[in-house]
Simulated scan of single mutants.
Amino acid sequence: MPNPFHLAIPVHDLAAARAFYGGVLACPEGRSSAQWVDFNLYGHQLVCHVVEGTRATSSAGSNAVDGHAVPVPHFGVVLDRPEWNSLAERLRAVATSFVIEPHLRFVGQPGEQATMFLLDPSGNALEFKSFADIEGQLFAT
């Protein structure tokens, strides 16, 4: 994967972060200490840092996008469709409470995509999306 990103996020509990990112999302764990842990989030480095008293309420706000209240801020990754479908099935199987259920948005328009939003145990909002043609649709206008 060219140019993987590095993202550091605040969490209130490393055990809960490990259960979610390592268990639910199946992200391999990398280095860690008593205050932080690295995860391989689909080839990208996600670092969960314990910040005492940190627990997001879900987001700072939201924006209306294609009939849904999209949490802001949020982060996530773009997956190929089979991987996205597999993740959506796995999340549904463990009764994930979605902020926005897995669905297609912008149907028939430039940028049509499969998307889903959820919160980690510390309230960080995540989006996972997929395009039928990532090269032609990711930045389509």
Rank of each mutant, 00 (worst) to 15 (best):
R31Q: 10
F75C: 12
P28E: 06
F75N: 08
G30Y: 07
P4A: 06
N3K: 05
H68F: 10
F131Q: 13
I9G: 15
Q109N: 07
T141D: 07
A125P: 00
E89M: 09
A56T: 01
N3E: 06
L91C: 15
M1K: 08
S130A: 15
F5W: 11
E127K: 03
H12C: 12
Y42F: 11
A60Q: 13
L14Y: 12
V78A: 08
Q35N: 10
P82N: 00
M116Q: 06
N85G: 15
Q35Y: 02
L46P: 03
Q109S: 02
V47T: 15
L14T: 06
I100F: 08
E101N: 10
T141A: 10
A34F: 04
F131W: 12
F98R: 12
L104C: 09
S58I: 14
H12Q: 08
G53E: 02
L14C: 13
A88Q: 10
T115R: 05
C48S: 04
F39Q: 02
A60R: 14
A64V: 14
F39T: 02
A125M: 04
G30Q: 09
V51G: 07
A56F: 12
C27S: 13
L91V: 04
D38K: 07
L138A: 10
M116V: 12
G123Q: 04
G43N: 03
P10K: 07
V51A: 12
A64N: 14
F117I: 05
V94F: 01
V99D: 13
R31L: 14
H49W: 15
A88F: 13
M1L: 10
V94K: 13
F5D: 07
A132Q: 09
A26F: 00
Q113K: 09
R31F: 07
L126Y: 05
C27Q: 00
F75W: 07
A16W: 06
V65P: 00
K129Q: 15
G136S: 11
L104I: 15
S32N: 10
W36R: 08
E83I: 02
V77Q: 03
A19T: 02
F139S: 09
F20W: 11
E112N: 06
S33W: 04
P10Y: 01
A19W: 06
P71Y: 00
Q45E: 14
E127P: 04
E127A: 07
